[in-house]
Simulated scan of single mutants.
Amino acid sequence: MNDAASTPLSPIGRRSGRVRDGTVTLAHGSGGKAMRDLVDDVFVAAFDNPALAPLEDQARFALADLARDGDRLAFTTDSYVVDPLFFPGGDIGELAVNGTVNDLAVSGARPRFLSCAVILEEGFPVADLRRIAASMQRAAAAAGVAIVTGDTKVVPRGGADKLFLTTSGVGVIPAGVQIAATRARPGDRVLVNGCIGDHGVAILAARDDLALEVPVTSDTRPLNGLIDALREACPDVHCLRDATRGGLATVLNEFARAAGIGVHLDEAALPVRETVKGVSEILGLDPLYYANEGLLAAVVPPDRAEAALAAMRAHPAGRDAALIGEIDSAPAGRVILHTGFGGGRIVDMLVGEQLPRIC
């Protein structure tokens, strides 16, 4: 059977290309047939959906369909340069989809569509690229979103470190939803949906130069379903943010500064695995500053805190949820950690980066 006869038809009726090379070459970024074959065989095959199928230079949507979900759009973008690309509990593709979904969801938006731009280094294994694209599609399906457009560039060997991803997302915010850092009020309670620091330690363990062997996996996961459950139990969530780079400490400082309030944390209430504590003590790092990829901080009114906590714990992404502190009027713009010894210390913004290339 000749090549043309064995090449499958794409959703729009034209014949899809096939990648014959084992590694990415500069020709795969040239805009010609080799590039079309790579896009068809790896990305279109993995992400296949009606909005992507026309393969125009943009995805197109009916405004009426979006308007049925709410009265405002949320739009976000992020780039992913994690090292290594594959780590315990996930990979760069899953991380990119979940990270963008979560950035939309913490605004109260319902994530709908993502784009994906890929920068590849010459020589990158095509098999690894297929694995990452498949991982992205599984993550998108789990979050209920579609990857509808994208771009592929190839740089010469040494011009990048294997692969970088940039994902952008669009979501729709339901009418009446107002979630913002400025809405934190004295008396509010602070909740998290899970254990702190898992992603940071998983990345550390995956890096050959540290030779760590710890049974911790990344917490990368979509949080939009959890947020829906939280908002059903507590419709007036004041603040939400996912604690990625800079960790939980940075997010809480952002709340404190934006609203001009003080955040008071109970050290004993912080959910941190013993393994994460142990690694942190060995390396002299603070779990409050580790990047997380499936952890959010929520600030809710005091009369709904218990209901919100119960709703989070009933969801798979919130089984380890905890009430970790509360909001006060003072000290304005500060986060204070109250220790088991009866003292307190200021938890400031992260200066620099505890761990480079973490997400």
Rank of each mutant, 00 (worst) to 15 (best):
V24Y: 03
L252I: 03
A258D: 13
A139E: 07
T77F: 05
A181K: 03
D303Y: 12
Y80M: 12
A146R: 11
K162T: 08
D188Q: 04
P54S: 11
L63G: 15
C195N: 09
P156F: 10
V81P: 01
H338V: 09
T217C: 08
D266M: 05
A45V: 07
T250V: 06
F61H: 08
A117N: 15
D219L: 10
A268Q: 14
S329E: 14
V155Q: 08
G29E: 13
L104F: 05
G247Y: 03
R60C: 09
F164N: 10
G89D: 06
I346R: 07
L350Y: 05
L95A: 14
F75Q: 11
R36Y: 05
P287W: 01
L104W: 05
I261G: 06
N253G: 13
R231F: 01
D161R: 15
P54G: 12
G99R: 02
Y289P: 06
L265D: 01
H315A: 09
R157S: 15
D78N: 02
P235G: 11
R189L: 10
A64W: 00
D348M: 01
D348N: 08
L73H: 05
L248W: 01
A258Q: 12
V170E: 06
T250G: 06
G150I: 14
N102M: 07
S107G: 07
G284S: 07
V39P: 05
P54Y: 12
L223A: 01
G90D: 06
H264L: 12
K162D: 11
